[in-house]
Amino acid sequence: MKRMYPFDYFLYALMVLMTAAWLYPLILTLSISLSDGTDPLLRVTFFPVDFNIQSYLFIFQDGRIFRYYFNTIGYALGSVVVHLLFTSMMAFPFVVKDFRGKTFLNVYLVITMFFGGGLLPSFFINRALGMIDNPLVMILPGAVSGFAVILFRTFFGNIPTELRESAYMDGAGHYRTLFQIILPVSKAVLATFALMNIVGTWNAWFPPMLYFRNPNLMPIQIYLRRMLILFDFSDAQNVDLRAMHTLVTNRTLRSAAVIVTIFPVLCIYPFMQKHFTKGMMLGSVKG
């Protein structure tokens, strides 16, 4: 058994505290969602009070939640496929010895990492491309990022060149080399970015807020946003406070909406954990 030093005990204690600090809000939210929401004095500290699942029944009785799930899963999967495909296709040429224009493309990529057009130019361009009420707005605009290309490039660069050269000698072209030789040995980077993409797309609320008018296209984050912030009473200039007060969503319903929204992602994480951990070190060591 490994010997434990005093500092190890301190580290373990620190990790336990940090884990508790991160887990407690999640547990509290879950407990509130499983409590009775009719009591305005509801005080939940850890365990649910007057356990009931009315909030979840209320949410799932609204059939639209399944539409939102369907939309979000579609956007996430589509985004992953497009992102991984185009990023790998963009990164691979950088490791091909004879590819001219590497330097220029490298500078071009780095510039995009530092400068952006901002909200208005992006909105105008996307609108001109017909992205209003178009599901592709959740997939295409963020399909290739400079950061991802650089990491993919670094990872591909670490793959032994002999692998590629032997493929070329056997008559394989670049596409075949990429899809049949390089990508199969790049599961770590693919899994890492797939997970990051899924989480990012799952959490995205701003693009659908900007570009979607049709409620049938809305992802689940828009639903959550409506549940959490239907009305901001701090703005007294807002209309008809007189009629709005009874419409405030109670805390149990809001908590249930949060749990319903994050639950699928929480389920995926354990299966992707090892890839995610390995992927965190991607690009940090060249060897």
Binding site: L120, R213, I229, L230, F231, D232
Partner: peptide, 22 residues
């Protein structure tokens, strides 16, 4: 057809409309 974002997002959308038309 009603396009009704949340109140928190309303001003962002309005400002976009004033800035960009459409």
């Amino acid at each position: 057809n009603w396009d009704v974002p949340t109140q928190a997002d309303y001003n962002t959308r309005v400002n976009l409309y004033w800035a960009g038309g459409g």
